[in-house]
Simulated assay, not measured.
Amino acid sequence: MNCIKSDILQAIATHPTIIIHRHIHPDFDAVCSQIALKKTLQQSFPEKNIFAVGCDAENLEWIGSMDVIQDHEYRDALVIVCDTAEMKRISDQRFQLGATLVKIDHHSDGENYGDLTCVDPSYSSVCEMLADLFFSYPESFNLTIEAAAALYAGIMGDTGMLKNGMAGERTMRVVSQIKKFSFKPERIHRLMKKNGTDLSKWKQLVAYRAQVTEQGIASLRVTKEMLENLGLDSYEAAPLIHALVAYKPARIWVLFIEEDGKIRVRIRSKTAPVNEIAKKFGGGGHKLAAGALLSSWEEADQVVEDLGEKRMR
């Protein structure tokens, strides 16, 4: 993290009320990080008022439900925003009413906001970040079975069940620690498939639209018009990278999504480092999973070309 873990603990210790937010159109990591943090803090600091807020997501209610609170609860409160790169995407804009704002995120291309900003793209997910925090301070954080299950589901969601290149050695170590708690991983896998990780719905789109170069670079371009036809926004289309990896044999996979005059790119790889290419275009990320924000489709062509040249070297 680019903030010290003890800073988060200090912020938690000094506020009587803690309100946890995440982004709109939530995915597993967003909701799971909220619920895991809420349950852990409730168990660890029973004297505090702990809330998780935001719009409901019906397909994720099995993870945990959101609280409905009044404006006065924000007075003197610590607000923690999980897994949200930009303020405009925070679900429930009352986050601004709190006394102290903390951002915990693993996206490298977001907005710098908050009194305390903890952003580290070396983590697969915010759930991994939180698990690492909890295990680093066992004397302060009492992790419950329910919280451990949520952390597990969030990590599984952002790593494509540990198969999309986001999971590193630390991820596997954290997962191993989490699985010591007596929840049932197979139940979580079943519920995740039922409620959002079934990639088969994207199979036809990937089959018809994706292209694979001679160098083994598979790419899929999702235009603004395609988003409208699919009824998605650019963030909701992000899981397409998992479908691309699942259904297009290649060495490197690249997803381009058009948004607000820019092109967001997500890159995944089996073995070849791709973060240096992402950095070349103003982005960054993990060795085998990176991203950037491009200015044009011409730059998208260049990304594919550069990745191909990297494979040939």
Rank of each mutant, 00 (worst) to 15 (best):
M1R: 06
K5T: 07
I18M: 08
H21P: 08
P26R: 01
D27S: 00
F28A: 02
F28W: 11
A30I: 03
V31W: 13
C32M: 09
S33I: 05
K38W: 11
T40M: 03
T40Q: 01
S44M: 06
N49F: 04
F51T: 07
G54P: 02
D56Q: 04
E58K: 07
E58F: 12
L60S: 08
I63Y: 14
H72G: 04
E73K: 02
D83Y: 00
T84H: 01
E86I: 12
R89M: 11
S91A: 02
Q96G: 01
L97F: 07
L97W: 05
L97V: 00
L97E: 08
A99E: 15
H106L: 05
D109N: 04
D115K: 03
L116T: 00
L116H: 03
C118D: 13
P121E: 14
Y123E: 09
Y123T: 00
V126N: 05
D132S: 12
F135W: 13
S136P: 00
S136V: 01
E139T: 06
S140D: 14
S140Q: 14
F141C: 09
F141K: 06
F141G: 05
I145E: 13
A147V: 12
I155A: 15
M156S: 10
D158F: 03
N164I: 11
A167V: 06
E169P: 04
E169G: 01
T171D: 14
R173Q: 15
K179E: 15
K179Y: 14
K180H: 13
F181M: 09
K184Y: 06
R187K: 04
R187C: 05
R187D: 11
H189S: 11
R190V: 15
L191R: 10
M192D: 08
D198F: 14
S200A: 05
K201C: 12
V206W: 06
Y208D: 15
A210N: 08
V212I: 08
Q215D: 10
G216N: 05
R221I: 01
V222S: 02
L227G: 10
N229K: 10
L230C: 03
D233H: 09
P239V: 00
L244E: 09
A250T: 10
V254W: 05
L255Y: 04
F256R: 04
I257F: 00
E259N: 12
G261L: 08
G261W: 10
R266L: 02
I267D: 11
R268I: 14
T271G: 09
N275G: 05
E276K: 06
I277A: 00
A278V: 00
F281E: 10
G282V: 07
G283R: 00
G284E: 12
G284Q: 07
G285E: 13
G285C: 09
L288N: 02
L288W: 03
L288I: 00
A289C: 08
A290V: 02
G291T: 09
L294P: 02
E299S: 00
Q302T: 15
Q302Y: 09
V303E: 11
V303I: 15
L307I: 01
K310W: 03
M312A: 03
